[in-house]
Design a protein around this nucleic acid. Structure first.
Lengths: 337, 337
DNA sequence: TACAGGAATTGTAGCGCTACAAAATTCAGT
DNA sequence: ACTGAATTTTGTAGCGCTACAATTCCTGTA
């Protein structure tokens, strides 16, 4: 029977130092400032470290130096493939900059607050959040500790820094495209319930765009976030009830747009001739279903990359609080409009 | 202009102790062993801590106690919704047990090895991995440090502990279902390239099941993992080339099965009459498309929960190395078979 | 050969916390 | 009031590492 975890003799910097025949400080320097150590010495130290399987204890280093190379990211859900790209962007950036990224999932504001506490407990170098709606106490805590924080997917008024794009502008752009394609009775599918700001700000943008053209702007139908694809058929039915001649539809995600497409095929409706459908998010499914979905691509990887860069800049003394970076969006024109 | 992060006066246990008028040790006890301190004292300490926004420094605590309340999970990808459920299960279990979960994404073995190093550097209490194929050095390192490790989604021969189900058994069960439904010319879609063991072990199970019944067992088509939905049509075309009377199809994921369903609808084939289609993974899409997909549900949440429990048990002194837990699977019968 | 000046190396002290043991306080039962 | 035990509180030492200053080792030049 093998020994329990704690009973193994831990490999410390000290043991590496002894094996390499140098002082512990030299071992430390070898890892943190390799250029300060003579090449030959460095070789010996690295050899000893490899031999012993030595991994520097971040916890101790962090404590001694007051600095951390770890950035914490709170993600609301991993179901959504935009977040996947966002995380990829962050991973890429931390790798370039010599940092580490750790993730926590949080579906609710309470969970987010708990995740923030964990990260602060770990004394991470910075934190990235999604959205601009957070628990009051959590924000207070972040303020007090002064950790660099980037809010992603939002576009203005951060309590520290933000990176994202404007959902309102994106909505306008999508409506413009629908209008250009000849649609005149455009419907809007939104999320009901207490959904986040970045979804809610689309509604007024939708209304304003249509009113400006003198078109009907009340074809709005709210669905339940949990319904997935199933929300598509429901929304289509609801909206057709309001205006049977509905000819364009703006969906909050590609998933719902796909659901609408399934329903159109069931009804024998041609897309985009009978109904033009706009997605949002550029999920994988958008380019795979028939007809291929015209959608909005939010540059999620860029967002992730910039979120990390902003934190690292701040740690290095640059980067002002209040900094907002607009990573924009792109409309991917395919077959559904 | 606000001060830089490092310049803020940090709130330490000491400052809480002063404010509450007790010794630092009492503050420590209040957080770690609340029952050891008098209720009234506890109240004072908690009040002071809240007032100052004190969050215990995990790094220091970890260093002093040699113990950690953080478990690290390495996830290969978050695109796949089974992993989502797996993570949910883990989150739930850590919350129950008073631990924390942090995630790292790793698509390749190299990235996995790096993630393991990070976790060991953080001196986490345990690590969960996916699959049983890891970089040799990483395994060596895990062995040396003795961290409790659970390999998930696999069923046997762990180097420490494992939790999962047998892909071979699952394949057999699915084939049995197809046969029962009257299929006699069954095709198999697999992943080409260097794909992990848990996918590869399905092939011999497929062949054996069919040979045992004296049926054709060479209708195997390999697709590229990156093709997503698009792999479905390709596989269907390839397999029909081998046997135009193909009447059943076993897909490696629901995504591919969905792609096949799209293609069937394009061809005007009835499912399951013309072709019965089996998915794998019970993704969201499985219950949303028409016809609804019969698929294999791997009890991912259970897997996550058990992975965490096994680690915590080990830390607490129970739980043998070599422990394997079979969380089984379920076939979700819907309309495609 | 001596020595300034840079390169490389090494003690010292302490980061914030906790294990442990010792000390102080409270309490019950005479 | 007094004692022994139980409860609560508190020093002490040290976890593994790094900042910083001090020391030692080199090299080239006078």
């Amino acid at each position: 029977m093998s020994k329990a975890y704690e009973e193994k003799t831990p490999v410390t910097m000290q043991s590496v130092a002894v094996m390499a025949g140098v002082s512990p400080m030299t071992v430390s320097n070898t890892f943190r400032y390799p250029e300060r150590v003579h090449a030959e010495t460095r070789r010996k130290v690295l050899l000893a470290a490899a031999e012993l399987g030595y991994i520097p204890n971040h916890a101790a280093g962090n404590l001694a130096s007051g600095q951390s190379r770890v950035i914490g990211a709170v993600i609301p859900s991993i179901k959504n493939s935009s977040f996947y790209k966002y995380v990829r962007g962050m991973q890429e950036a931390v790798a370039d900059l010599g940092y580490e990224l750790i993730l926590k999932l949080a579906d609710t504001q309470q969970q987010e607050a708990a995740a923030i506490q964990t990260f602060i407990g770990l004394r991470v170098a910075g934190i990235t959040l999604v959205g601009d709606e957070h628990e009051k106490d959590a924000v207070e805590l972040l303020r007090k500790t002064g950790v660099p924080v980037v809010e992603s997917w939002v576009h203005h008024a951060p309590f520290d820094m933000a990176v994202g794009y404007s959902s309102a502008e994106a909505t306008q752009a999508m409506i413009a495209l629908l209008l250009e394609a000849g649609c005149r009775r455009i419907g809007f599918v939104g999320y009901g319930g207490s959904v986040s700001h970045r979804f809610r700000e689309r509604v007024p943008a939708f209304e304003a765009s249509l009113k400006a053209r003198g078109l009907r702007s009340d074809l709005i139908y709210l669905v339940d976030e949990a319904d997935g694809f199933g929300a598509g058929p429901k929304a289509l039915e609801g909206l057709c009830g309001m205006d049977p001649a509905l000819d364009g539809l703006l969906c909050p995600t590609d998933i719902i747009a796909a659901g609408v497409l399934f329903e159109c095929s069931r009804r024998g409706w041609k897309v985009p001739e009978r109904l033009a459908v706009a997605g949002w998010g550029d999920y994988e499914i958008a380019s795979e279903i028939t007809p291929r979905l015209t959608t909005l691509q939010p540059n999620a990887e860029d967002m992730g990359r910039h979120a990390i860069r902003m934190i690292v800049e701040r740690v290095r003394g640059a980067g002002e609080p209040g900094h907002v970076r607009n990573t924009g969006f792109q409309i991917v024109r395919r077959d559904s409009i």
